[in-house]
Design a binder for these strands. Structure first.
Ligand SMILES: [Mn+2]
Ligand SMILES: [Mn+2]
Ligand SMILES: [Mn+2]
Ligand SMILES: [Mn+2]
Lengths: 219, 219
DNA sequence: ATTGATTTTTAGGCTAATCTAAAAATTGTT
DNA sequence: AACAATTTTTAGATTAGCCTAAAAATCAAT
């Protein structure tokens, strides 16, 4: 089907297209893929020949329906494997990404579907990201960044934007896990930090924390 | 660490060295790898530079200790994943090989060891092949080919030599599974076929069956 | 030991995916 | 609108892994 590298490009374009809507620029893709712009141009041409992306020189790139479907399939596998590692093999949520990066390229539709069944058709991965079903449909949800909550507003932790080991370990250390209720006690506008109540304790978090934690507000 | 291709070569050399003791010839390796002799020579040189094999031009190749260890690690992963697919994901024993060929290259020592633990430290894969422990030690067993049993001798099915879909389906169709008792009722020397008793039924099997089924004789 | 067949290696090329350096196109600022 | 800065593409190399065809070494049989 598609090469490992092609799959990684498709996934990266998918994420970038979601993040900033509009065509994905060569440089943005190069940064995401940790490669050089010239390499991106080469690959984008190849993907374009295979009709996985729409590409006009100097105008950035968009996924075609076919490319989007392929990207979602890879994302589905990535997230299912992350659930497997955490739920079945005792990995913690900060250890699974690199292994899932490898496992997401295993080619077997039956494997993916049986894994999904074995895991009980999970809706979200260990970082709160939605897992598309076998038809490629995501369950969308009304989540906000912690940073966007008003003073006094409460919600439930439902996901992380940054999945780095460092951030996830910070959350673990401070008792912040998915599903936990959280309340914004006070907003300090000067440094954009927040005082939040979690586990009945008050904790001050800086902007780099609050812009990386997703909250589903309780109405 | 090692590339996918390098790992596959090491595994192939390991199997061939076991099968016929002595140096592994370029042609034998080319056939096993389904590639050309010239490609084998290239790769063998590379493995030799990395000290994974001992190689003298025209004299065939041997695994070094380092190469053997790497090969066993790949085999361990292959067989553990096969157990996972059959035991946890409802695959049948004739469907798992190609997927395990992909999964065996996933790099994470912790993943392998946790998988092993999750599966309850299985001793054999679905085809009866022994699974090395994390130190690379195989449990050896006194198994014979069905073809080597004498008339009247009994034993237990413990493994297959040929793991092809066709052979495994033949066994399924005739109720032959690992762990089943089996008895050689009569040997027909003319065509080297055997009459065997299995599940209280008599079944005639030709030489191509009896030379691909391993039996542990009951004394 | 010589010859002939077989096996193995070498020589030279190809493709996918990457890189550096240079050229071309686009964008932003006066 | 012109020019400088930035972005993107092109040109030309490199590496891993494979190929075909030719040369060299080994093996087998007289
Ligand atoms: Mn991940
Ligand atoms: Mn994730
Ligand atoms: Mn197998
Ligand atoms: Mn097996």
């Amino acid at each position: 089907m598609f090469s490992l590298s092609e799959e990684n490009y498709l996934k990266a374009i998918f994420h970038l297209e979601k993040r900033y809507s509009g065509g994905v620029s060569t440089n943005a893709l190069a940064e995401e893929m940790e490669t050089k712009a010239s390499s991106v141009t080469d690959m984008v041409k190849k993907l374009s020949d295979k009709e996985l992306v729409k590409y006009r020189k100097y105008q950035g790139v968009h996924l075609s329906d076919k490319g989007k479907q392929a990207a979602i399939e890879v994302i589905r596998k990535h997230r299912l494997w992350e659930v497997f590692l955490v739920e079945k093999l005792n990995f913690s949520w900060d250890e699974v990404h690199d292994i899932a990066e490898q496992l997401e390229h295993i080619k077997s539709e039956k494997l993916t579907d049986e894994l999904d069944k074995f895991l009980g058709h999970p809706k979200r991965d260990p970082h709160g990201d939605p897992i598309p079903d076998s038809d490629g449909n995501f369950r969308i949800s009304n989540k906000l960044l912690l940073a966007d909550l008003n003073e006094g507003q409460s919600g439930i932790c439902v996901g992380v934007k940054d999945s780095s080991t460092e951030f996830l370990r910070y959350l673990d250390k401070n008792g912040i896990t998915l599903g936990k209720p959280i309340k914004v006690v006070q907003r300090e506008e000067y440094d954009e930090s927040l005082l939040i109540r979690i586990n009945a304790d008050d904790l001050r978090v800086s902007k780099s924390i609050s812009t990386n934690l997703f909250i589903k507000p309780t109405e």
